[in-house]
Each structure stands twice: as structure tokens, then as C-alpha cells.
């Protein structure tokens, strides 16, 4: 049962992630990305992290991707042809992506994989998560909240100049901050 679910979710996640970069229509890419988030949430559930799974859906699939879709729909009104980038931009993108891939690969090679205890079913509960966040990791937690605050201020500054996009900018930053 566990194995079947794991492989199903893995294939779904990888397949949808490939769909994101391979589909020509940006709206389809966004929809594939949402499906990828669902597969990843399923993985969190398999790891007993219910809170993380549901927050992943609320924040990413429910709020941030709605805003992505929002922007895509507005930009994609007339044609779904993407503008051709110059050779230089393509090359730069390839190098940047390749370097990121190398870093991830190097990190994965040296990482030690700890085995999850499948019997324990309380590691992902909100109570334990809160205790860990506010005792052991309180400093990084507070620093990240300052980061979000600066992002909110940045969004307000930007929306002052461009009245038209104010709702979009405010929404995206504040949503990720609160949740």
C-alpha cells in the first residue's frame, strides 16, 4: 500500500513537473505546477506531516498559484505564442540552470539519508511543529518574519507607483506571510 502510493505520487510529481516546462501554453504550465504541488503534498502525508501537506496546498496551490494564474490569464489573452529569446539569454539560462543542478546533485551525493520511523505518527502534528519552531528554531523563524515584513513594505512601495497592480502585489506577499 505504502509502496504503491509512493510510486504513484513520485511518477505524478515528476510527470507534472516535466509538463510544467514542456507545455507551450503558460496556463497549462501553471495547472501542471498545481498538480505537482498536490503530488508533493501527498508525499508529505506519507511522511506523517499532515500540517505541512495542508499548508502546502493552502499557500501554494490555493493562494500563490491563483495569483500566477491570474497574471497568466491577463497576459495570455490574445495569443499563446511565446516570444523568441535571444541566443545569449538562452545560453545564460542554460548555464544558470546547469549550475543549480550541479549544486543540488553535489548536496544530494553527500547527504546522509535518515530513515523515517513509519510507526510514529505524531512528528508532523501542529503541536510538535509549533514547539520546535518556537524553541529550537526561534531565531531563524523570527528572521524570516523580518524578511516577509520587508517584502510587504517593498510591495507597498511598488504599488504606490503603479496603482493598477496594487491588488496583485499586496495579495501575493501578504498571503505568504500570514500563512
Amino acid at each position: 500500500m505504502y509502496e504503491v502510493l509512493f510510486w504513484f505520487l513520485t511518477i505524478m510529481a515528476i510527470g507534472c513537473a516535466l509538463g510544467v516546462i514542456l507545455s507551450r501554453n503558460p496556463v497549462n504550465s501553471v495547472l501542471f505546477l498545481i498538480a505537482t504541488f498536490f503530488a508533493i503534498s501527498g508525499h508529505y502525508l506519507l511522511l506523517n506531516a499532515q500540517f505541512l501537506a495542508v499548508v502546502n496546498i493552502i499557500v501554494y496551490a490555493g493562494a500563490i498559484m491563483v495569483l500566477f494564474l491570474f497574471v497568466m490569464m491577463l497576459m495570455n489573452l490574445n495569443a499563446d505564442v511565446e516570444p523568441q529569446k535571444s541566443r545569449l539569454a538562452q545560453l545564460a539560462g542554460m548555464i544558470a540552470g546547469g549550475v543549480l543542478f550541479l549544486v543540488i546533485l553535489a548536496a544530494l551525493r553527500t547527504a546522509s539519508l535518515s530513515v523515517l520511523d513509519k510507526q510514529s505518527n505524531d512528528i508532523g502534528l501542529i503541536k510538535n511543529l509549533g514547539k520546535v519552531l518556537f524553541t529550537q528554531y526561534v531565531l531563524p523563524f523570527e528572521i524570516s518574519s523580518v524578511l516577509f515584513l520587508s517584502a510587504i513594505i517593498g510591495a507597498v512601495v511598488i504599488s504606490r507607483k503603479e496603482e493598477v497592480h496594487s491588488t496583485v502585489a499586496d495579495g501575493s506577499v501578504n498571503t505568504s506571510d500570514i500563512k
Partner: peptide
């Protein structure tokens, strides 16, 4: 055990 968050998740998907 996260019932209310589940409701929230589904509600936030409703707009799709």
C-alpha cells in the same frame, strides 16, 4: 486532526 485547515485548503481551491 487538522480538520479546519483541510476546510481552508478546499475552500482556497474552490476559486479554480
Amino acid at each position: 486532526n487538522i480538520g479546519i485547515l483541510f476546510v481552508f485548503g478546499v475552500v482556497s481551491l474552490g476559486v479554480y
